[in-house]
Design a protein around this nucleic acid. Structure first.
Length: 492
RNA sequence: GCGGGCAUAGUGUAGCCUGGUAUCACUUAAGCUUGCCAAGCUUAUAACUCGGGUUCAAAUCCCGGUGCCCGCACCA
């Protein structure tokens, strides 16, 4: 596992996908930068994500919201009080424990809502000792995972870096409800950064302190949403799913969408199908590397009524890892902001007064990028990154077979004729084989090679990355021919 | 946060125990070559994580910082 991690990281460092931020000062735990290939790939991933998910409905739209949120809004959302850990340290062995867990383990009741003072008095009353060594416990300390900020010249306006992009959607719910002409369901997508002061960031881009989320928040009327979706079109789709009791074993069942309805609501299953199709059909992730994994009651946030992680099997991270989630958050968020802001969040639709519920489709962009590098990288007989062509940082390499005899000039011309339409890369150094190999390693799906025949017959060789097979294509028909090639599949 | 391990060119490494001007491969660049899959030749660029100590002399020994990896804990 570690070897695989090193392989992927080495590729990433050498070629320019991802590396630690502030590298020249020794790095900065929990922060990573994207190099030129990584940034291009990430942008393409975001584009295809947007295109697909906004394409699910005319009523799903992209918005963009601030990274910094004031105290009040995060107080109302619950983050000020609940996005915290109460840490209790043992005076003897020095091990830290979560205070609410210690209390909960003794009383059998959730202690999540207790303050540090309350937890201290519970520990005192119940005579709770360190579970490791039975030593005496020190007074508890509060640790909030949000990064605090002071805004304004006096610094008295307390704020935080947002811990999730989702809040941006909830805060804009009312405005958009008006702009979108007072109808639900509608959806707000945000691609942006979120910030969490993780206690121990680990495993590369898997747990970062600053990370990118792509989220779609769908606001709907829980009474009618099921009927507003075309479930019949997806009901026969087999869904790859692991329920709580089977996921540790790595078991993945395939259950027909229609047969999940005795356990899950229609609207939830419908979106599971759509997400699975995005991964298996659009991004062509190998089927056995994808699944939904159920979270048990203890694992999920209290406001998530239904919560499945969306996981990929990532060798460099030791197996199944959460890259996204699909959360039924009910009316928790709008209710909280309604109470906090005194703005009415209920809306009147078709004569009915409803507080909309939220279905959140949440994607970790950095985790996706890492997962794709891992899953599609092969380093056996030749180094090969089998990225789906839509997210490959470079789509076409353009080469002269050899750098003489007028070939470079013609190859340049070919390159110039398509560079405005596609991500291209021109190269004439080294041997042709080496140039192919370089492109294979960074996932470039096709290479165009100008040879001596090209001078006579106005065509070039198109080489397919995965098969290495070639065919010829006319130069004069180029931009269009390549567009067709990308659309129809390789055909090699 | 605790415990353990690790840190040498862009990447991967040798050297460290036993102190004496840092090895090898790939990569990159320039030139020669090159007729379709990392060919070859020549040349070049490039590194001891940081700070302090011991010593005539530190990549090497000692102390500290930082970072990374693993385990524990944590992951609204």
């Amino acid at each position: 596992m570690t070897r695989r991690y090193d392989e992927v990281m080495s590729l990433s460092l050498r070629r320019g996908f991802i590396w630690p931020s502030v590298d020249i000062y020794g790095g900065f735990a929990g922060f990573y930068d994207y190099g030129h290939l990584g940034a291009a790939m990430k942008r393409k991933w975001e584009d295809i994500w947007l295109k697909y998910f906004l394409g699910l409905s005319d009523r799903y739209h992209l918005i963009d919201t601030t990274n910094i949120l004031p105290f009040k809004s995060l107080k109302a959302s619950g983050h000020v009080d609940h996005f915290t850990d109460t840490l209790v340290k043992c005076s003897d062995c020095g091990v830290s424990h979560r205070g609410d867990h210690l209390v909960a383990d003794t009383t059998g009741k959730s202690a999540e809502a207790l303050s540090t003072a309350e937890i201290d008095s519970e520990i005192e009353n119940l005579d709770i000792r360190c579970p490791e060594c039975k030593g005496k416990l020190l007074p508890s300390t509060e640790f909030n995972m949000m990064f605090p900020l002071s805004v304004g010249p006096t610094g008295t306006d307390q704020a935080f870096l947002r811990p999730e992009t989702a809040q941006g959607a909830y805060l804009n719910f009312k405005r958009e409800f008006e702009s979108l002409r007072r109808k639900i369901p509608y959806g707000l997508a945000i691609i942006g950064r979120a910030f969490r002061n993780e206690i121990s960031p680990r495993q590369g881009t898997y747990r970062m302190r600053e990370f990118i989320q792509a989220e779609l928040q769908i606001f709907f009327n829980p009474r009618t949403f099921d009927d507003e979706l075309d479930f019949a079109s997806v009901e026969d789709e087999p869904i790859r799913i692991s329920f709580e009791d089977e996921k540790e074993e790595g078991e993945v069942g395939e259950i027909r969408a229609g047969d999940l309805l005795d356990r899950l609501p229609k609207f939830y299953v419908y979106h599971m199908v759509k997400i699975q199709q995005f991964y298996l059909d659009i991004l062509r992730v190998p089927r056995d590397r994808f699944r939904f994994a159920e979270l048990g009651e203890k694992e999920r946030a209290f406001y998530n009524k239904i919560h499945f992680d969306i996981e990929m099997n990532i060798d460099s991270l030791g197996g199944w890892g959460e890259i996204n989630g699909i959360h039924y958050r009910t009316d928790h968020d709008l209710k909280g902001h309604q109470a906090g802001s005194n703005e009415k969040m209920t809306v009147s639709v078709e004569g009915e007064r409803v507080l909309p519920h939220v279905l959140e489709l949440s994607f970790g962009v950095d985790r996706n990028i890492w997962a794709f590098l891992d899953v599609f990288y092969e380093n056996e007989e030749r180094a090969l990154l089998r990225l789906p062509r839509e997210i490959a940082p470079i789509t076409f390499g353009v080469f002269p077979l050899v750098s003489k005899g007028g070939l470079p000039e013609l190859a340049r011309k070919v390159h110039d004729s398509i560079k405005d339409d596609f991500s291209c890369f021109y190269d004439e150094t080294g041997s042709i084989g080496k140039r192919y190999a370089r492109m294979d390693e960074i996932g470039t799906p096709f290479c165009l090679t100008v040879d001596f025949d090209s001078l006579e017959s106005d065509d070039v060789t198109v080489r397919d990355r995965d098969s290495t097979h070639q065919r010829r294509m006319s130069i004069s028909g180029l931009p269009e021919g390549l567009r067709t090639l990308l659309k129809e599949g390789s055909g090699f």
